[in-house]
């Protein structure tokens, strides 16, 4: 049995909120640089160069990369032999989000869905737990902006729709979204499971390191094929035309019912943000 103090969790979650919002992954910046090289349109090049400069300013001046510092989505992997002392895990995480968003000068973007009254401290976080064997605790904070979240879609396809039907739906989502979700995008796709499982794995797909293919070769091929088709739409950076509508496609799958084929498409803008800590 391993004991972890809730205060340590709060402090670490606060750091993760700030780190994720100030510093986007180096792999994303490299993908912008590659995109500048392959784009022929001046507008696409200039948008991408501004994004590279924006990432540098955010990192060097310790400020948010994007003003939409998002809903704090938190993925927790907790070993069943871990005990949290001095409070609950959930309270510790929310206290960390509150502290991180306050100390880091991040925008408090959460509101009651009906009254639209702001909660004032960016809590509650949206927390997903995985309980695993052992004594490890790993927490990932993945702030999610709503420019791209709003353009995400889920559809319950027919079980015989196949890759063709899945592709058709995904391309429709990308075209419906157009320039709205701040392309170049990272496209997270969840195929299978149930209604909510497909959505959850599509979001988990967004925290996989950029461009790391699915370990299943056939799925990795499907990711590549979809990326080519998405980039062939010509929507381009900021929707102003170009070859780089998406930086990568990440697919996660889960067995599903014989009668169905849930497909969730979770779009992430170029501000791919996540930071992880282990205890």
């Amino acid at each position: 049995m391993k004991e972890i103090d809730s205060v340590d969790i709060t402090n670490k979650v606060a750091d993760l909120c700030i780190q994720a919002n100030y510093c986007i992954p180096v792999a994303i910046i490299k993908s912008f640089q590659n995109a500048v090289r392959i784009e022929s349109s001046e507008k696409a090049k200039s948008s991408l160069n501004i994004l590279i400069e924006n990432a540098n300013i955010a990192k060097n001046e310790s400020m948010a990369y994007c003003q939409d510092t998002g809903v704090a989505v938190v993925f927790v992997k907790i070993g069943q032999d871990v005990r949290i002392k001095n409070g609950s895990l959930e309270n510790a995480i929310n206290a960390g989000v509150k502290k991180g968003y306050e100390d880091g000068f991040l925008r408090k973007s959460l509101a009651d869905p009906l009254t639209r009254k702001n909660t004032g401290d960016n809590t509650p976080a949206v927390i997903h737990y995985d309980i695993l064997p052992g004594e490890a605790l790993e927490i990932t904070v993945a702030p999610k902006g709503f420019g791209s979240e709003n353009m995400s879609q889920l559809k319950m396809l027919n079980p015989t729709a196949g890759k063709e039907g899945i592709t058709e739906f995904i391309i429709k989502v990308i075209k419906d979204a157009g320039g709205n979700p701040c392309p170049p995008l990272l496209v997270g796709i969840g195929i299978g499971g149930t209604f909510e499982k497909a959505a959850l794995i599509s979001k988990k797909a967004l925290i996989r390191p950029l461009g790391q293919p699915n370990p299943d070769n056939a799925i990795a091929e499907f990711e590549k094929d979809l990326l080519d088709k998405i980039n062939a739409t010509g929507i381009g950076p900021m929707g102003l035309g170009g070859k780089t509508t998406a930086l990568a496609v990440h697919i996660e799958t889960y067995p599903t019912h014989i009668a169905g084929l849930p497909v969730a498409v979770n779009l992430c803008c170029h501000a791919v943000r996540h930071a992880t800590a282990t205890f």
């Binding site: 501004i50 924006n54 300013i57 408090k108 420019g147 701040c182 803008c269």
Partner: peptide, 28 residues
Amino acid sequence: VCVGGAGAYLSKRIKSLKVIAYDDLGPE
């Protein structure tokens, strides 16, 4: 239009800010 998500970059071109209405909306 300006470059979406370039929040840090664009902030450098803003010299002052004054809240003038609907203060209760906070960031909005």
